[in-house]
Structures are given as structure tokens and as C-alpha cells.
Amino acid sequence: MPQIFRHSTNYLARATIFGAIFILLAALWVAAEITRSGWNTGAYIERQQPIQFSHKHHVGDDGIDCRYCHTTVETSASAGIPATAVCMNCHKQIWADSPYLEPVRASFKTGKPLQWIRVHDLPDFAYFNHSIHVAKGVGCSTCHGRVDQMPVVSQTNSLQMEWCLECHRAPEKFVRPREKVFDMEWRQRNSSKQEIEEGQKLVKEYRIQVGGKNGTGVMTSCSTCHR
């Protein structure tokens, strides 16, 4: 009876049977990396806004504090986007005739608000409160990156639950003194042993409720965020 398959098919069959497990794992790994990638999370996309507001200039060069514009970050769940009047506080006098600022002046005159494009957006089923994070020593640059170096704001982190849990499970790695929360140059994470020790002290001092094991503490409990 003539052989349909060549002799090398034996080796191919054996290789693919063992390789199938490897191929399956590789495929799963690729899928996992894609869901964490910037394509899926929207990270590093510079969102073009209706007005070319440069944080790099206003924060980096001019030294304006975050709270001058994002006024409710210490008191409310939402940090707040500045009202047109906040822009006009300075720009009634500085660059008062600049064509770049024409939409701002028009908004102020007509009373129609400016429509900014949201950069950091969590899904609606996740509750996030800025004020508690700021009060407990989580810095602005820890989550939002070096905004003072961004001419156009982009989302530097994935904002996925996995990323949030990285801190929620080990806050000593990310917490900083309260006075340094609005300091853009402070380190974004505690890596060395000494830094982590400092972090642990702060966790105790600020009463960050890490608590029990595996979801029983407030920090790792489901209903803290999924309300």
C-alpha cells in the first residue's frame, strides 16, 4: 500500500503534539499582553484639546500649583476642570489678544462652556474619589505621571484594575508625605528598602486601612470601589 505521508510526518506530528501546549500558552500570553497594551488602554495617546493648553508651560515653566485650577481635588471625588473664569483670571491681562486664546475669550463672553476631551476616564462601574487619595498621601504624579513635562496631556498608566491593585495591595510602595503630594518631582514609587520602610511608616501614620487578608481589608475589598 503506498504511503500517503512522508517519513518526516512522524517528527512533525510529535512536535506539534508537544508544541500545541506551548503554542496555546504563547497565544494566551499574547492575548494578555494585548489587553494590557496601550492600544487597549488608551495610554500614551496625546488627546488634542480644543485649546492647546500646555501643562508643561503653565506648571513646568510658570510653576502654577495643580490646585489653582483643579480646585476640588482635596474636597471632592472629582478633581474638577477649571472654569473659563479661572483662565481669564490671568489671561485678561496676559496674552489678552492672542489668537490661541480666542476660544477662551469667546466662551467667557458668550457664556458657552469650553468642551475639553477627557483624558483619564474610568468605567462607570468603578468609583474613584480624588480627595481620599490626596488626603492619604498619594501624589498627583504617581497616577498621572509627569504632567509638568507634558505639552499635551496623555494617560501614562493603564488605569486598569490590575494597576490600581498594585498600590492598593502594597501602599507602602507608593505613598509619600502629604506635603509632597503636589510636588511633581517627588519619586513616583518607593523602590529601595529604605524608601519602602518610610512608606510603611506613612501607611501607619496616615491610617491607610490595609487590614486583613485577601479582600477583607478596606483597601482590597471589592465594595470599596465597586459600589
Binding site: 487597549n40 473659563t84 467667557f108 468642551q115 477627557r118
Partner: peptide, 14 residues
């Protein structure tokens, strides 16, 4: 699917 970007609209005079 990746959702389209949302808008955030503040006050003119808060």
C-alpha cells in the same frame, strides 16, 4: 470595543 473619548465640560463662571 474601545469607547470614544468623552467630553468634560466645566462652568464658565463657577
Amino acid at each position: 470595543v474601545i469607547q470614544p473619548p468623552e467630553k468634560v465640560i466645566p462652568y464658565v463662571k463657577q
